[in-house]
């Protein structure tokens, strides 16, 4: 495992910590898209089906359990916690799940490495993760006052994807025969979706302004 992969995973973990801090400590999920969080829970549930059948490493297993557990916890908080759920911007978070799920599933049936349930669902999760941030980006654009935790959460998620790109470049040059086109192309698409957000995040940070996106 190279440094970029480790930093990517840690950034991903940190993004979850930031989000849980906002939800659990401040008891608010204002500006957070439940649609995106539900899509992430689906991503992890379909990707980590191999958790008990194929052992990669203790590190991988522990991280998988953490991502599965936290993603479902976040969804539970936003849907059922009596204080947190009242801070959810339901009227603004209008993106439809099926508009992302159906095309991703169709694509996974068409473009995959093997036609087995585990492989198709794994491929589906890769495609879905690439676009799962979409409802969150739409909600951010509609939010007038984006708080620091929400802005930092999305920034950390984008940084995690950027670090994975660097990890793939290192792996390509150091591991013989290492290629994974499905993951690479999806990863590039996923990172590109953050480009606009990054631009405004850095611009506002440099000007010492509160984060706001042009609508």
């Amino acid at each position: 495992m190279n440094i970029f992969r480790l930093c990517g995973d840690m950034t991903h973990l940190l993004s979850v910590v930031v989000l849980l801090l906002k939800i659990h400590t401040i008891k608010s999920c204002a500006g957070i898209s439940l649609k995106t969080q539900e899509l992430y829970a689906l991503v992890f549930a379909t990707r980590y089906l191999d958790i008990f059948t194929h052992h990669v490493s203790l590190y991988n297993t522990v991280m998988k359990i953490i991502f599965l557990g936290t993603s479902f916890t976040i969804v539970w908080y936003m849907r059922h916690h009596k204080v947190v759920r009242q801070t959810y911007d339901k009227e603004q978070d209008t993106f439809k799940h099926y508009m992302l799920i159906i095309p991703c599933f169709a694509l996974a049936l068409l473009i995959k490495t093997k036609f087995t349930p585990l492989e198709v669902l794994w491929t589906f999760s890769i495609y879905l993760e690439a676009v799962a941030i979409f409802p969150q980006l739409v909600l951010l654009q509609r939010t007038k006052n984006i708080d620091n935790l929400t802005g930092n959460y999305v920034f950390l998620l984008g940084a995690y994807r950027g670090l994975y790109l660097l990890n793939w470049i290192v792996r390509y040059f150091t591991e013989k025969g290492y290629r994974q086109w499905i993951t690479w192309i999806s990863g590039i698409v996923q990172t590109a979706l953050y480009a606009d957000f990054f631009y405004y995040y850095i611009k506002c940070w440099r000007n010492n302004e509160k984060l706001h996106l042009p609508s």
Partner: peptide
Amino acid sequence: TMFVRRHDEL
């Protein structure tokens, strides 16, 4: 081992 290698990322 092929499976494990292709799915060794999170």
